[in-house]
Amino acid sequence: MASIILNGITWGHSRGITPLLAIGQRYSELHPEVEIRWKKRSLQEFADFPIEKLTEAYDLLIIDHPWVGCAAATHCVLPLNEYLPSDYLQDQANNSVGASYESYVYNGSLWALPIDAATPAASYRKDLLPQPPQTWDELLQLAKAGKVAVPGIPIDVLMHFYSFCISFGATPFANEYEVIDTATGVQAIECMQQLYSLVDRRMFDCNPIAVAELMSSTNDFWYCPFAYAYSNYSRAGFAKYLLHYADVVALNGKQLQTTIGGTGLSVSAFSQHKSVAVDVAKMMVDGEMQRTMYMQHGGQPGHRSAWTDATANELTNGFFNAVLPVMDNGYMRPRYNGYLHFQDHAGTPLRTCLMDNGDPAKALQLMNELYRQSIHQNSTSLSV
């Protein structure tokens, strides 16, 4: 019987749990004295319960990078740069998928290893739509035909809002008083209203997983312009119909810059077996492991060598090659301690505005009020 038991917490999708179970099993085979027990929670459960509280009960935690400001303030997880070899960390930095590695570095410390990388990308049913839209106008035409699905829950419309602000020439969070200037923010919301006024109302209750499930199980929707990408739906046998992925559409003459997600693997500062937990994390995020067992068991690696690997792309019908340019062009959200208060709430007035064709200026005003509150607030959530 194992003398060391490590408890881990992750999110409840095949991408989030299956590779961890597989590698955990292999670690225990190599180290019989260690047993790793993973528990899965829904994304909403992560949002509803502060991750800093979870560190008291779990040794290993899958986290979202905007939480690292809280990690740095509370020191409830280990600064992994003080526990891992410099050559290992350099390999991780050199093989970052977009800003994945950088997103877990805050105040000079590394609070998680980039175990999973993701960003909103376009997905489509190649059997129904041989050539996906390339421009915003082409997307709107397809939406008018009722063939477009797009996530519409608060967290996702907020992530898309950042992309549209950037496309109109301004980067969000440039100061501590407003998310974005009024002219740019209103223009971004008005552009989003063009699309969301054309899609099925069901979309306002769909997250990226729900959209992917709809597209891969029915013939109702042929194309999604931007949703956090899941390589699982590009793998034969995972769903009834295969999804293919592509770059997002161009607006104002250039591709939208989507908001990166993905997850990191942290080690609790309260763990009774810190050195073992760090060793497990080191194995799980190692380049060779990410490229082989992690990817093969449904994972979406955070190590770049997996994304450029021929076998990985063959298994996923070119998913990684298609999404890598979108990842490399991705926008990284703020990570200050308190940002998650804004993220947890600011999508609600935006979603209401999109659902009801409301006043963009009013929605933006509410978002700015929440932003100013967030400068002095703490919160926790997970978005992938």
Rank of each mutant, 00 (worst) to 15 (best):
I4H: 08
G16A: 06
P19Q: 11
R26F: 08
E33F: 03
V34W: 03
R37Q: 14
F49K: 13
P50G: 11
E52N: 10
H65M: 10
V68N: 04
L78D: 03
D87P: 00
D87E: 15
Q92C: 14
N95M: 06
Y101E: 12
S109F: 00
L110E: 03
A121V: 11
P130V: 11
Q134Y: 09
Q141M: 11
P151Y: 05
I153V: 15
P154M: 04
P154C: 05
F164W: 04
F173G: 06
E176G: 01
D205I: 01
N207W: 05
N207F: 03
P208T: 02
D220V: 00
F226R: 08
Y230T: 00
S234E: 02
R235W: 03
A239F: 01
K240S: 13
A246S: 14
A246D: 15
D247A: 14
G261H: 06
L265Y: 04
S266Q: 01
S275A: 15
A277C: 09
A281T: 10
M283W: 13
G287L: 11
E288H: 13
G298H: 11
P301C: 07
H303C: 13
A312F: 03
M327K: 04
Y331P: 10
P334G: 08
G347M: 03
T348H: 14
R351G: 02
D356N: 14
Q377I: 00
